[in-house]
Simulated scan of single mutants.
Amino acid sequence: MAGYTGSKEDHLRRLRRIEGQVRGISRMIEEDTYCIDVLTQISAATSALRAVSLGLLEDHMSHCVLHAAQSSEAEGRAKIREASDAIARLVKS
């Protein structure tokens, strides 16, 4: 079971909203909207995706990592490494 199962609908709702934002940005480009206005909307969509990422990461830590750590030290260390790698990728982006 995925760690985000309990908040799946919330994540999906946010992603649908982001999907609408991205479609809106495409329309803005098609309609030759002022560059700064497009960049502002891209920034908003990026922030929204980052919020979803952080929510998924929190779910992962409180479910998957916690259960692995309770299962065995080796499994816990592996999940912590996996989460650390994911955090490093998020920070890079």
Rank of each mutant, 00 (worst) to 15 (best):
S93Y: 14
D32C: 13
G20A: 13
A51M: 02
S84W: 02
R77E: 10
Q21W: 04
V65W: 01
S93F: 14
A88R: 14
Y4L: 08
L39G: 04
Q21E: 14
A2S: 09
G6E: 06
A2L: 12
R13G: 14
S62E: 12
G3K: 14
R50D: 09
I42R: 01
V38K: 04
C35D: 05
I87C: 00
C64Q: 04
R50P: 07
G3C: 12
G6H: 03
L66Y: 02
G76D: 08
L15E: 13
V52G: 00
A83E: 07
S43C: 07
H11E: 11
M1E: 10
D85H: 09
S62K: 13
A83H: 06
R17P: 00
V91Y: 04
A83D: 02
L56T: 05
A2R: 15
D37E: 11
L90H: 08
A45V: 02
R27K: 15
Y4C: 14
S72D: 05
A86M: 12
E19R: 11
E19K: 10
V65M: 03
R89A: 09
D10Y: 15
I80R: 01
R81T: 00
G76N: 05
Q21A: 15
A86N: 11
E19H: 12
E9V: 05
R14D: 08
V91A: 15
T40M: 09
A68K: 02
S93P: 00
E73L: 13
Q41E: 13
D59M: 03
R81A: 08
G6W: 00
I87T: 01
E9F: 10
I18V: 07
D59K: 02
Y4A: 13
H60T: 01
L54P: 00
L66W: 00
E19I: 02
A83T: 07
S7L: 05
A2K: 15
S53I: 00
Q70I: 00
L54I: 09
V22G: 02
L90Q: 06
A68T: 09
A78R: 08
L49K: 07
H67M: 06
I87P: 04
A86R: 12
V38L: 03
K8M: 06
M28T: 05
R16I: 07
E75C: 06
G20P: 06
T46R: 14
V38S: 05
Q70P: 06
C64D: 09
H67D: 14
K8N: 14
L56R: 03
L66H: 05
L66E: 14
A2P: 04
D37Y: 01
D32W: 01
L15W: 00
Y4M: 01
G55Y: 05
E82T: 03
V22D: 03
L54W: 09
H63W: 02
T40H: 12
I18R: 07
A68Y: 02
A88Y: 15
L90C: 08
S84V: 10
K92Y: 04
Y4F: 11
R27F: 01
K79P: 05
D85M: 04
S71W: 00
